[in-house]
Design a binder for these strands. Structure first.
Lengths: 242, 242
DNA sequence: TGAATAGTGTCTATAAGACAATATCCC
DNA sequence: GGGATATTGTCTTATAGACACTATTCA
């Protein structure tokens, strides 16, 4: 089925594509909206448009290492939840030639997101508007903090859209929302994360019940401080017993 | 961020991996077990071991076209549900060198599966044993029709395992089970498909209720024939209104 | 008619949504 | 104490599982 790599005749005919990794770094801002980090391109193609942080994959690194390197070099962020999303290989996705992109998505609490991304030149935070699951119409929109629509390079709108669809799906069966929260959080904090990801409001009572019954979080016996009213209990994500 | 393709200095340094597509063609046999098609390798590495149908990706075909070509050429099957699964890029996954594999999974009704695969030389049907979701222990096993354990080449055990995990997850929110059924089927047929995929038995009453309430299937007003008892109503998958 | 499975009706347990009542904090 | 939100308790409704009962076919 496969031919030994050093067979020169087969090797000559073989197509070797260029390979990049692009990362959708997601967080949830104070306004309860999903946001991601984009870099402005200052060369063609798509000069002036906004692109996801990405790198070419090196010879001696895995796909995941390359994604982590993209995050570190282009977003100043390390040690976050990082998972493969999808591989984009359309023939015309890059006008320069055939370039495949293995897309990853990463999740990070807002404090780390805003602290790290504030340092990056030519980068900006994009507030995302994504049609909710039941709506067929409408594309992804990325807006700057000032409210300007950001034009996306390549097929990065599709990549971002798929990242959001993916975490929406995973939210229901994987403890993924906690990756977007700091160590200690209130029940309402988790609910806001879920609402931001799902793009719709949730019933508070049943959300609380389900979360408390999930065995995923534990009471820290601490209370929120600085609130002008009754402070909420702080919970933390429970390390899973193996 | 990215450099123009024709820039010779950047191009020279760039790593161009070899790229294959492998397909997990899944069906459910008469015994209610998940099964897939494997080919025996007759060259090193993994000579004599069993591998998924796969091809190298050509210069002018998309990843999905390559996957469809692998299915057509190596399994004699076309026009089936086909979806990207994951991209495997570990450094050591192929002892000959760095070869990436974009894995796909395909679903086909058992009649087509067995009719097509009977014609393929050096191929065999593997009956799969996959640990259910809550069990952490245990790896994927592939057994021949005669009950012999089949040794899998490369990381194809991981690929198959991930394919099964994926369809298990999708079964709950996507009308994916119908891809494993013929045009007309009984409610019990669908249940058997779900049980095979999930690897556990389901409650008949609530499965029927949920399926009938789902608006995914419609009564054909036909009955099953040839049964030695009361024949079940035949349903068909309802084409979704757009 | 009997065997065997299809399909219906109903009861119960559990989970979700609604909402009132009470608790706790800061000012 | 007043304002505001957290937290608890309870009622109602929807859904899942259990199970008994009826229906239909072939031998």
């Amino acid at each position: 089925m496969k031919v030994a790599r050093r067979d020169p005749s087969a090797f000559a005919k073989r197509f070797l594509p260029e390979l990049t990794v692009d990362v959708v770094l997601l967080s949830v801002g104070d306004d309860g909206r999903l946001c991601t980090l984009l870099s402005r391109r200052n060369e063609a193609p798509y000069k002036g448009a906004w692109a996801l942080p990405g790198v070419f994959v090196g010879r001696t690194e895995t796909l995941e290492s390359a994604a982590a390197r993209a995050l570190r070099d282009k977003a100043g962020i390390a040690n976050v939840f990082l998972e493969q999303l999808f591989t984009f290989g359309d023939l015309q996705r890059d006008p320069r030639g055939r370039v495949l992109s293995v897309a990853y998505y990463a999740l990070v609490p807002k404090a780390r997101f805003f602290a790290a991304t504030a340092e990056i030149a030519d980068a900006a935070i994009a507030l995302l508007t994504i049609p909710s699951g039941d709506e067929r119409s409408g594309a992804i929109h990325a807006d700057s903090a000032e409210g300007r629509r950001m034009k996306l390079a390549f097929d990065h709108d599709r990549i971002i859209g798929m990242a959001v669809q993916r975490i929406r799906g995973k939210l229901n069966y994987a403890p993924i929302g906690f990756e977007l929260l700091p160590d200690r959080f209130t029940l309402l904090d988790i609910q806001h994360i879920h609402e931001a990801v799902l793009g719709r409001t949730l019933n508070k009572d049943s959300f609380r019940r389900k979360m408390l019954a999930s065995n995923l979080i534990e009471d820290t016996k601490q209370r929120q401080i600085g609130s002008a009213f009754r402070p909420a209990t702080l919970y933390r994500f429970k390390k899973q017993e193996n």
